[in-house]
Write a protein that binds this DNA or RNA. Structure first.
Lengths: 338, 338
DNA sequence: GTGAAAGCGCTAACAG
DNA sequence: CTGTTAGCGCTTTCAC
């Protein structure tokens, strides 16, 4: 096996010009049969692989996309990645992973990679746009699809769920069980996702004519630890809640941990609803009642939209809203003293 | 702002040759001061970004690495990714994500990407090597670091933990609590990782002179579901175990789920130990006793080794064994009837 | 310290 | 259907 056969080598070995080899290998219909298979055969024999950088330089494409998240460590993203990766592969693209850790500069850097020619487009899951002065080209000129988090005033296609509605449904479930003193542990505000889930909580509470004293609405940061802390604070109050709606599963787990530490049981003493339906949530004891989102589908759809954008310059759907489902499991029950 | 300033544009704007611009921007010491800052200034003003594909073609490097796993959906990888991403970024590399789903063809394809010039090296976490006949160049000629799973008879640097020893320690813990009928739910055999953990179980049992009847050693596939199934089977026996060592946390959760379904409590009726220490494991009720591995560190170290390989052609350490720790939490206790 | 020239490997006009 | 030619944007000899 040669070390790195080039198109030129194949051309010589099969007695044609490089152009013909290129055409043959790229499935151009303009190559005659005997030539075609001869070329293919030599390519195979020589272990030929097109040099991606040369091709990219020439075609001004990279056949790769970037997926950008705030925190790779968040288990929530896993299946979204999976959906993206599968759709990308099917279309012949590779996937670059970017992690911003909420750092605006990093985020800008990744945006600028689109100008470098390193990626043809990006799936943005950070919920934010870098400041224009940090960017080489206007963000709006890039092929970007926003997933999971809505970015207001942007013209990018979005693939999202209706966070407000889903949150309201979760709270309505608690209300229908008879709970009246329902707390909410929100995600980091004023992030869009957290804001919408909070709004859903408020909407449902209001519709039922229930009180929402400030001490029942707490803010966490989606981490286990913050759920634990806020759960703790919630039960140090004179009049603790009988139910909690946490803005994600991890905080729900944290809150349950805090309650266990105080000798409270779920759902007997307190009901808890989460959001996300992590793969482990059903294995929790008791299994967590939570809002399930179609994560793989979100990833897949976002990637398909991005392909439209890259290949057609536009996409059919500006905003795609995927459905959620409240999964009622073991952490919710009627309140004790009803 | 121009659309896509090239090095030539900067050269014209600052009255020098492209060569000088290239030198200036790449920090070559051969550029005189006045020229240097003039060039830098115009580059900034024009929003210049070097075209990555052109540079890659010229330098025959891609400044990107590939990380390959069996299943992106596995929460175990998250922090390993994080460690890899951070170390890669620091060194100016970007990270491509590859998912094989145990498909040998896909795995070979990713290997071949190293020949394409798409990535300069790879962190292999699948525990397997593609068949040589599928590969364009011999695998051994590539810059590859194996992480998490040992590949026997390969010359690649490895970054691993001592699975056998860690498993033995977990089982010793159960033995020291007084358990004698200890079951093991293994991962998929004959994968290296599963095999080593099983060996650790056997070693500890043997050392304590305990029986290992075949019905106490079951094989799962690391999934929640398989843990549930095997846990179920374990308790349908006439003489069920008093303790279970599961080869990963997910299967431990599954087993606990199965026991809960039969009205058994952990750790009162049965003790359970897992392996991995997923971020959610401490929030489980009761919190899971498990073996913790330094996942971020594994990722980071693997990336550093890979950089050695790419940049120096060799690395100091052939095999790096990172330490594990048995975290004793709430799922283990002395057996009921001792 | 700077410039001219070549070429990385590929694809896409344009001719024929 | 096939070959010739040019050039993507960059870095790097080699001269001066």
């Amino acid at each position: 096996m040669q070390s790195k056969a080039r198109i030129k080598d194949i051309a010589e070995h099969s007695g044609v010009s490089p152009a013909t080899v290129s055409r043959a290998l790229n499935g151009s219909s303009l190559v005659a049969e005997p030539t075609l298979s001869r070329i293919r055969e030599t390519a195979r024999r020589l272990g030929y692989r097109p040099n991606v950088n040369a091709r990219n330089l020439r075609t001004q494409r990279s056949m790769s996309v970037l997926m950008l998240v705030r925190d790779v460590g968040n288990p929530f993203y896993l299946e979204v990645f999976k959906g993206i990766e599968a759709a990308a592969r099917d279309a012949g693209y590779v996937v670059l992973m970017g992690n911003t850790e909420n750092d605006a500069e990093r985020e800008a850097e990744y945006f600028n990679m689109l100008d470098d020619g390193r990626a043809d487009g990006m799936i943005l899951m950070t919920g934010t746009l870098p400041a224009p002065e940090r960017l080489v080209s206007a963000a709006s000129e890039q092929s970007v699809v926003v997933a999971l988090e809505m970015i207001e005033n942007s013209t990018f296609p979005h693939v999202i769920i209706d966070n407000e509605r889903a949150a309201a449904e979760a709270v309505e479930h608690l209300i229908s069980l008879g709970h009246r003193r329902i707390a909410h542990i929100a995600g980091p505000l004023p992030e869009e996702m957290s804001t919408r889930r909070l709004a859903g909580y408020r909407r449902a509470m209001q519709a039922a004519g229930l009180d929402m004293p400030a001490e029942l609405v707490r803010t966490g940061d989606f981490s286990l630890k913050s759920g634990e802390l806020q759960g703790q604070l919630l039960f140090e109050q004179s009049e603790p809640p009988t139910a909690i709606f946490a803005a994600n599963d991890e905080m729900a787990f944290g809150a349950i941990q805090a309650m266990a530490a105080r000798g409270l049981t779920v759902p007997e003493d307190v009901s808890v609803v989460g959001f996300d339906d992590l793969s482990l949530s059903k294995a929790f004891q008791p299994p967590l009642t939570t809002v399930s989102q179609p994560r793989i589908e979100i990833g897949r759809t976002a990637m398909l939209r991005l392909l439209d954008l890259i290949e057609q310059g536009e996409t059919s759907q500006a905003v795609t809203v995927l459905g959620t489902e409240l999964i009622i499991r073991g952490t919710t029950a009627p309140p004790r003293h009803n």
